[in-house]
Amino acid sequence: MKRSLAELSPPEVLKVAIWIEERNARIYENYAEMFEWYEPDVARTFREMAREEREHGRRLNAMYAERYGEATCDLTDEDIRELVEAPIFEDGEAFVYDRVRRRQALEVGLLAERRARAFYMESAERVEEAALRALFRELAEIEAEHEAFFVRKLAEDRAAPSAES
């Protein structure tokens, strides 16, 4: 039986957030694999994004260790109802039309981070428990940082001479 994120305790939420970052890293790695043969630049970007997600995961892990020590938690992202921050490359005919460039990869990441931030913000508004609300706000802020990372990358991409219009 899947549960809502809002029904969890703060350590559980944090643990799930760690899993989400790990899952996303693996999704990006898979995208990198998908694009390897096709557009190495896009694949490279997805790899960078996977590394970034792992870094996020490490930061959250550190936060978890700091707050809850060695406390164990069996929950993963698979156990919750909501789909949080799942990056999805939605252009089903991207290879066919050969239109994918680095920018689209970054946009996938940006959209996922935005969704995640919006989700955590919304959850913060909804939950009653103060500690949980604080955690959701904290997570939303972290996602906002991640979002800023993608915005910066996109700006760099646009500024680069080889960038596609």
């Binding site: 939605e90 089903g92 290879f95 066919v96």
Partner: peptide, 13 residues
């Protein structure tokens, strides 16, 4: 057929 089967929305290809 070079589609992303999880995402395509038309039969074309």
């Amino acid at each position: 057929w070079l589609l992303l089967p999880y995402a395509f929305r038309r039969n074309t290809y």
